[in-house]
C-alpha cells in the first residue's frame, strides 16, 4: 500500500520530467544521427554517423573541445585559489555576519549570467570604465583589449561561478574542528603547513563539490564566452550556437551537444572514482 502511494505521489513529477526533459533529450539524441539534405536546410531523417565522424576527425572541433575543457580547469583553479581564503574567512571569522555574506555572494547569481556579463562589458570593453580611467590618468593612449580573448572570458567565468565554489567550501570549513589547527600551530607548524596538511585534506569534500559545480558550469556556459569572447573565443557552447542559429545545421549542433555530454559523463565518472579513492583514505582526527 505504501509503495502504491509512493508511486502515485511520484507520478506527476515523473511525467513532467519525462515531458520537459527526457523527451527533448531523446529527440536531441535522435537528431544527432540525422543530417541536412544536400543544398537544403531540410533534415534528412536517415540514420548516419557522419556528424560524429566530422567531430572526431576535424581538428577545429577537437581543438575547441580541448580549449573548452582547459578553460573549465583554469576557471576551477582560479575559483579555488580565490574561494578558499574567502570561504575560510566567512566560516571562521565572520560568524555573526555569515548569513549576510552568503546572501551577498549568491545575489549576483540570482540576476542571471547575462546581467553580470553585460556589467563586465561596461567595465572591461575598449570603451569601458577601466580603459576610460587609464586614459584619463594618461597611462595609455589606446585602449587595452581585455575582451575578445581567453583572458576576458576567464574573468567572466570566475566572476560568474566563484559563489559555486565558495558555498560548499563554507559548509565544509565551518565543520572543521578549530582544535586541529590550534594543535598543529602549538607544535610549531607554519601557516602553509597547516593549510597543506590539515585544512586542505579535510576540506576535500567541499573542494571536490565546488570544483565539479564550477567546472560543469564553465564548460557548458554560453552567454559569458559569447559576449566576452566577442566572437573570437570559440567554446563548445558558442560553436553549438553558431551551428544551430546561424548555420541552421541542427543535426550537427545536436551531435556537438551529445559529444559534449559524453565527455562530461566520462569526466564525471573519473571524478567519482577519485572521490571514492579519497573516501578510502584514513582521515586525520578519526578514531583509527
Amino acid at each position: 500500500m505504501a509503495r502504491k502511494s509512493t508511486v502515485l505521489l511520484l507520478t506527476p513529477g515523473l511525467l513532467l520530467t519525462g515531458a520537459v526533459f527526457l523527451s527533448p533529450f531523446v529527440f536531441l539524441g535522435l537528431t544527432s544521427f540525422w543530417t541536412q539534405r544536400p543544398n537544403s536546410l531540410l533534415i534528412d531523417p536517415a540514420f548516419t554517423l557522419v556528424n560524429y565522424v566530422r567531430i572526431a576527425t576535424d581538428s577545429f572541433f577537437l581543438g575547441t573541445l580541448f580549449r573548452t575543457i582547459l578553460l573549465g580547469i583554469v576557471t576551477v583553479a582560479i575559483c579555488l585559489l580565490l574561494g578558499l581564503p574567502i570561504a575560510r574567512w566567512i566560516a571562521r571569522r565572520a560568524v555573526r555576519t555569515r548569513g549576510i555574506l552568503v546572501v551577498l555572494m549568491v545575489t549576483p547569481m540570482v540576476s542571471g549570467a547575462l546581467v553580470q556579463t553585460l556589467g563586465l562589458v561596461n567595465l572591461l570593453s575598449l570603451l569601458g570604465v577601466i580603459n576610460g580611467l587609464l586614459k584619463q590618468l594618461g597611462l595609455i593612449d589606446w585602449s587595452i583589449r581585455f575582451l575578445g580573448n581567453e583572458g576576458g572570458v576567464l574573468i567572466g567565468l570566475v566572476q560568474a561561478f566563484l559563489p559555486l565554489m565558495v558555498l560548499p567550501l563554507i559548509t565544509t570549513l565551518a565543520k572543521l574542528p578549530e582544535d586541529l589547527e590550534a594543535a598543529a600551530r602549538s607544535l610549531g607548524a607554519p601557516a602553509w603547513r597547516v593549510w597543506v596538511t590539515i585544512i586542505l585534506p579535510l576540506a576535500m569534500p567541499g573542494i571536490l563539490a565546488g570544483s565539479i559545480l564550477v567546472f560543469f558550469a564553465s564548460v557548458t556556459s554560453f552567454v559569458t564566452p559569447q559576449i566576452l569572447g566577442q566572437g573570437k573565443v570559440q567554446t563548445f557552447g558558442t560553436v553549438m550556437y553558431q551551428q544551430s542559429a546561424l548555420v541552421n545545421d541542427w543535426p550537427f549542433a545536436s551531435a556537438l551537444a551529445m559529444a559534449m555530454m559524453l565527455v562530461l559523463g566520462v569526466l564525471l565518472l573519473a571524478v567519482r572514482a577519485v572521490r571514492r579513492g579519497l573516501e578510502r583514505r584514513p582521515v586525520i582526527g578519526s578514531a583509527s
Binding site: N39, D58, F60, K232, V239, Q242, V247, F252
Partner: peptide, 22 residues
Amino acid sequence: WPFLIENRSAWTDRWNAEILVD
C-alpha cells in the same frame, strides 16, 4: 547566394579557424 548557402557550414569552420584565430 545558392553557392554560398551550399558552403555555409564548411566555410563557417574555415572562418573560425582561419579568420578569427590570431
